[in-house]
Amino acid sequence: MDQFLQHLLNATMLGGTYALLGIGLTLIFGIMRVVNFTHGELYTFGAYMVFFFTMTLSANFFLALVFAMVLGIALGAAIEFVLLRRLRGASIDTTMLVMIGAWIAMQNTEQLAWTGVAKSVNHPFPIDPLVIGPVSVSWIRIFVFCVAIMLIVGTHLLIHRTRLGKAMRSTFQDRETAALMGVNINAIHTATFALGSGLAAAAGALLGPVFVLVPGMGDMAALKSFAIVILGGMGNFMGAALGGFLLALVEELGAGYISSGYRDGMGFLIIIVVLIFRPTGLFARAERIG
């Protein structure tokens, strides 16, 4: 029983970050329909930026998190502006190839800049965990969880309650009509990609101090993000958030009670099952045809 409670708590903490990764990608992959292979690299970028600000420049930890996210947004905007803007009419294959190229180039740049030696980031939270009865959780994970939830809710409100959010939704529903209504299509594309990238960088910035930093750390994060988006239904915001928690739960319980060797396989098993029975994703509403 104690083990089960600990698994549940671990899954909740992990689910928060999976959800954050998922919503960032669902904006780009689900709404913009760009197969964003750089998602994992923006995650890595966020983590290394926190390392750079706190460990190299000795900046305040919380300030470093904000800087990392802002720089992630800027990098995302730059990728959209330099690469994707030129490819707007191109086929999905072309875009995909360009993004794969960007992914490889970014990962090798990280390797060059930071070397393959793992880095670790100091954080101001106590090492001794919070103990609640039979289970325990570290303070930094609680902090990461709370910030992740805040970012998820904040992004949800941004998309559903603001003018910018409305413009985003309308643009990706019907680009021409949105343009006729006076929406600046180019700006919206850049803003959406930047926002999704900023969320990936935030996830990396938050998780970097929990784990260790290596240049290839984004690969697994990106793979899981794609899984979460497909699980939750393409472009479905709440679906991605719930998909993140579901994936974490399946991984935890699968590893805990079935086999840890198949831990990462469990999540993909669920996706296969979901795709067979609900091909549009677990939480997808009926597809609207423009």
Binding site: Q3, Q6, H7, N10, M13, L14, L207, F211, V212, G216, M217, D219, M220, E251, E252, L253, G254, A255, G256, S260, G261, R263, D264
Partner: peptide, 16 residues
């Protein structure tokens, strides 16, 4: 217990 070479979160294995 086993873990993927790239895995970073090992909480499930450690709880077991």
């Amino acid at each position: 217990e086993t873990m993927d070479a790239k895995a970073q979160d090992l909480s499930a294995q450690l709880a077991k």
